[in-house]
Amino acid sequence: MEAGKFERLKLFLYMLPLIGFYSVMFITPIVLIFLQSLGLYSLGHMGETHFTLEYYKKFFELGGTYMHALWFSTWNSAVAALIIAVLAYLMALFFHFIEFKGKKIVTAIYKIPLFIPYLISAFAWWTLLTPGGYIQRFLAWLGIIGETTQLVNDKFGIGIIVANVWINLPYMVVLLVGALKMIDPSIIEASRTLGAGFWSTVKNVIFPLTIPSFIAGSLLVFIGMFGAFSVPFILGGSWPKYMSITIYEDVVDRGEWGVGSVQAVVYMIAAVLIAYLYTKIMRGMRGGGERA
């Protein structure tokens, strides 16, 4: 059914509130940030505006604050995403293939972190991992770490990784359980009747079928952590810092809107890139545009 001109106008009118809202509340600020990053607009309502690449130069200065922040937020979030991927896969297999009494309760409980504000989760982990906190004490008692070892506000962002895993794991599990449900049970049945054990079925049959969800989910989890503010704010150290923190400090503490905007632009490019990859993978999975 190809829509006629009038029909198209009607469709457009239906979508107008949505388009209007995002034009004002989302696209406008992004455009302004982009202009500010080039010196063509002043977000801070001060000073003259003229074209300059000064802020970009500042950002891309090798060994400078911002390259470090970008690198740190990238690798730190990637490590967390990797841990999440592995743990979530195991959990998803568990929930999908095993029936047991009380499963309903467990499946409800594991989703709780999804709905707890980041700030609270970060803070909870801060109290556990700070020297003298329960987990820090326990690890020190086991002799894994020293009595005074810092697991929060440290150079490696250990606290950030732990809290991020806790927060994002359930999302990945939900996603993977969904992907496992889409696998035709008869395929698994076939593999089993052909004499394959459970783990070899997972390896040879199930895993290849869930790769797209696996990657797509990991991408979303990654970008969420990469740009999050609360977790690195509470658990991050003096150095290095997440880029979300350096943006906040530049803008809020020092009024340096220019370089703050460049960082925001970098975040947006990363986000659009990931959104693109995500939709591409999802479309491939749906098999030529057919929605699951």
Binding site: F26, T28, I33, L220, G289
Partner: peptide, 25 residues
């Protein structure tokens, strides 16, 4: 499809990034 995908973007862009623009506006 484009509409569907574009609606995803506000969820993916870190709030702190668009936030400084909104703060100014």
């Amino acid at each position: 499809r484009l509409v569907e995908n574009l609606v995803l973007i506000p969820l993916i862009v870190p709030p702190i990034a668009s936030g400084i623009g909104l703060l100014s506006m």
